[in-house]
Nucleic acid binder design. Structure first.
Lengths: 157, 157
DNA sequence: AAAGATTGAAAATTCAATCTTT
DNA sequence: AAAGATTGAATTTTCAATCTTT
């Protein structure tokens, strides 16, 4: 008895925890898909591509180092590198070595890139409102913020 | 003035709405990725594959029609069909025409499939607790459930 | 060796077309 | 024609290896 073949009995989810988890799973799967579909249709950008351009557009010089951009968009450097490569091919941004630093690269929005974010923004906000924000009350909003922050912290530990 | 070249000024997000949205975006991107990485490592299953097998395991006959399985896992029929094809090749489930109905197909868990879900479940629950549930209080939990449900409804409309 | 970033191959997902049954 | 499901091709993402600079 009490040998090593069985792990301790895990703490299973309660009814309420399971319901919350299932609702969250559906959200995690469906919301990005819905956003992607709609943004592709309206702006020729995926949700993730929009995030990349949008984050850049909020920077003072429309510029950010690749690894910082990865952190801001919650992406791996590899994924970002591929996506940025495609966006660069479309001339929506360009990459350049950061002067003085031989190994850092920065991505900078082009004029066309800036235009496309500006044009896509209203549709993006409308979708975010329609699918998420406008369905929530003030308490939900603060809870959502807390939850997202807590998850990020838990994952990065 | 008032022509058709400009859309109406959209209702931009307030500071709090934006914060909630950014937190949610990080959650939507990071949580599935973290879960995937951990489940792959521990169980040779992606998060989505686990969902598929897990949903089947909760059915009376460990069986569900493809389109129902798609609905339960929030997936497109096309995605499900590919994933189920791979799981079938690994002999974790099998497909068969539903008797009497010439166009419906049902997926059924095999013995090996059931074993692998049972073996993966504790790790899955532990990850869900560590990354999400155990960081939330009772209010967050009910909010999360409400939010997930509201989003699903908004998207399906 | 670690940090910053890229690359190509492999795996997964999406998209559009297709097939069968109702 | 619509419902249920599958398929192959194109796209995207992941994984592991690589390269350069510090």
């Amino acid at each position: 008895m009490g040998g090593m073949t069985n792990a301790d009995e895990p703490r299973w989810l309660s009814r309420d925890e399971l319901a919350a988890w299932l609702a969250n799973s559906a959200l995690m799967i469906s919301l990005p898909a819905a956003l992607d579909a709609r943004m592709q249709r309206e702006s020729q950008l995926t949700f993730f591509e929009y995030m990349v351009l949008s984050v850049l557009s909020e920077e003072p010089e429309h510029t950010l180092q690749m690894s910082d951009l990865a952190a801001r968009t919650s992406a791996s450097l590899s994924r970002l590198s591929h996506v940025v490569g495609r966006l660069e091919k479309r001339e929506l941004l360009r990459r350049a070595r950061i002067p003085g630093s031989g190994r850092r690269t920065a991505a900078t929005l082009t004029g066309a890139g800036h235009q496309i974010v500006v044009a896509a923004a209203p549709g993006h906000v409308a979708a975010v409102r329609e699918y998420l924000i406008d369905n929530l009350d003030a308490d939900d909003l603060t809870a959502l913020r807390r939850i997202g922050t807590a998850v990020q912290k838990a994952i990065s530990d």
